[in-house]
């Protein structure tokens, strides 16, 4: 059984279809990238995995649990396994970056303060943000907030991490660092990663498979090499765009 399954998911907002029969599966231990144009419904797709949205029809399964119909207890347990980097980073403005990252450990584990501090520091070091530990989120740049959110998403021992545009707003060099980090977490801790991104080149570098969402459906879902060769018009379009082909 796959770890994550979308079965024919349709999502409407006020009668407007954003997802229209979306189906895909993510295997355990995989890096799964989701690409698509702005407004295609990539963030909405991720949010279904943790019941921030409920499908209008269809099912979303996480390790066999039907998320939309799960009991509160099952839902909390499923969410507890998942680390989530939000597109907006979603840091708490009144806490320092370090406190934000330490928050899931402080609130949910019995670790002592020294251990929490150690893990926080190492998560911040992974995203190259040690120097900003004492700053407040509104004082740092968007890219730094993104990385702080990423540190918070990985500080807990989750086995699934959802990244919503981890590299948007970052310079190319830092982007590569983040891509390396995602791959490292995947290789060393076996974290299943679902990465939503605009950056097809980045996706090709790290993904085991790439899903392209078009018109609320899965247009293609292929490993990077085959994705580049795909004859699907939507895939051809985005590949051409990546190559800087403006016709």
């Amino acid at each position: 059984m796959s770890l994550v399954e979308f079965e024919n998911v349709t999502k409407e907002f006020d009668g407007e279809k954003v997802l229209d029969g979306l189906s895909f599966k993510v295997e355990k231990g995989e890096i799964f990238c989701i690409v698509g144009q702005s407004g295609a419904g990539k963030s909405v797709t991720l949010k279904h995995l943790v019941r921030l949205f409920v499908p209008t029809s269809g099912r979303v399964l996480v390790d066999g649990v039907d998320v939309a119909r799960a009991s509160e207890r099952e839902l909390w347990r499923t969410r507890g396994r998942i680390g989530y980097l939000f597109q907006s980073a979603a840091l708490l403005a009144w806490m320092t970056v370090a406190d934000n990252v330490a928050l899931p450990l402080r609130e949910n584990t019995a670790l002592d303060d020294a251990e929490i501090e150690k893990r926080t520091a190492s998560a911040l070091a992974e995203v190259e943000l040690s120097h900003a530990a004492g700053k407040y989120p509104p004082e740092i740049s968007g890219g730094m907030q993104k990385r702080a959110g990423l540190a918070r998403a990985i500080v807990r021992e989750s086995d699934i991490v959802l990244y919503d545009e981890p590299t948007s707003g970052l310079d190319p060099v830092t982007s590569v660092t983040i891509h390396r980090l995602i791959r490292k977490l995947n290789r060393t801790r076996g974290i299943t990663s679902i990465v939503v991104t605009h950056d097809l080149a980045g996706a090709i570098a790290i993904a085991d498979r790439i899903l392209l969402i078009k018109d609320g459906k899965a247009a293609v879902c292929l490993p990077p090499a085959q994705f580049l060769e795909s004859e699907n018009p939507a895939a051809k379009e985005i590949v051409a765009a990546m190559k800087g082909d403006i016709g």
Binding site: R79, S88, A90, L91, L92, R152
Partner: peptide, 21 residues
């Protein structure tokens, strides 16, 4: 503002109850 910025959702996913917190 926290809701719109997904901060409430982020808390819940970190298993921190926004009601309590």
């Amino acid at each position: 503002a926290m809701k719109v910025n997904d901060e409430i959702a982020a808390l819940e996913i970190m298993s921190i109850s926004p009601v309590r917190f």
